[in-house]
Structure formats: C-alpha cells, structure tokens
C-alpha cells in the first residue's frame, strides 16, 4: 500500500477528532445533561470529522486494492524543499523571539537581511530597499496607526 496524501490526511484527522472527543468532557462543562448543551455541537462536529476521515482512509485503501497501486502517486517529500521550508519557519520563529528584546524595527531589519541571504541575494540594492521598507512599516504602524510596537 502506498502512503498517499489521503492516507496521511485521513490518519491525521482520525487522531485529531479522537483527541477532541476525548478532551470534550474535561474541556467543556455541560450546563445540563438533557437536551442540547455546550458539548453537543463540538461533539457532533468531531464525530462528523472522524466519520469523514475514516471514510477517506477506507475509500483510499479500497481504491488501491481494486486498481493496484501502480497508477497512484505516493506522497512524495522533496527533502530539499522541505528543509528550506523548515529553515524559513525557524527564521520566522527567531524573528518573533528576538522582537521583544531588540524591538520591532531592528528585529525586522535583521530578519530582512537574513531572509535575503536565505534566498542567496547578493544585490545590495535589495538589502537597502528592504531596510527602507522596515523603517516605513515601523513609522506607519507606530506613528500613523498609533500601534505600540515592541
């Protein structure tokens, strides 16, 4: 059996819906035990999600058994692409962590420079342009929109 996006997605949402169904009694206090209460809607929706996820899984397995898995493309992970994505996420998280310590303006400038390095940009004009943009965004939010940026 090939690991397709339907199988992975189905498994993921079976897990999520089971988790939700499991935590509902703890996380949602039922105001009354009879009739519809605050637990009902999330429980029904989580059950619907579970049913759809199981159906997605069963349907995919049935299709693979019926047609063979020759014509079905497996879920391919392009590691080069995903490493870039993970690195960029790390960069964003680092930007968020640095902001309260060095302030929005300097954190944004550092993030812009690192992002351009990430994209292998050597043209100095790009760096200058983004630095100016950081100052403009900071000015607009802080002084025109009166947002107390860190």
């Amino acid at each position: 059996m090939k690991m397709t996006s339907n199988i992975l997605g189905g498994l993921l949402f079976v897990g999520i819906s089971l988790f939700i169904l499991l935590v509902i009694p703890d996380q949602v206090q039922a105001s009354s035990q009879v009739g519809i209460n605050a637990q009902s809607f999330p429980r029904w929706i989580a059950t619907l999600m579970l049913v759809c996820s199981v159906f997605l899984l069963v349907n995919e397995v049935r299709l693979q058994r019926k047609n063979g898995s020759i014509n079905i493309s497996a879920f391919n992970v392009d590691f080069k692409k995903e490493i870039r994505a993970v690195l960029f996420i790390v960069l964003i998280v680092a930007y968020a962590l640095a902001t309260p310590f060095i302030g929005f303006l300097f954190a944004s400038m550092a993030f812009s420079a690192l992002a351009l390095l990430f994209f292998n940009i050597t043209n100095i004009k790009f760096y200058i342009f983004l630095m100016v943009c950081c100052v403009v965004v900071h000015y607009v939010f802080k002084f025109l929109l009166l947002v107390q940026l860190p």
Binding site: Y95, F104, A115, F119, L130, F141, P150
Partner: peptide, 25 residues
C-alpha cells in the same frame, strides 16, 4: 517583481498587523 523581496516584506507586515490587534506577542 522578485519574490525574494516580497516574502520578507509580507512576514514583516504580518507581524506588525498581528501585533496591532491586541498589542501582544
């Protein structure tokens, strides 16, 4: 327009815009 310029700019806008809602990290 080059994407290498737009991508960091979008993130910066996202941060400023998100922070402006409740003033919290």
């Amino acid at each position: 327009v080059d994407f290498s310029l737009l991508t960091p700019l979008i993130v910066i806008f996202c941060f400023a815009g998100t922070f402006s809602i409740n003033n919290t990290m």
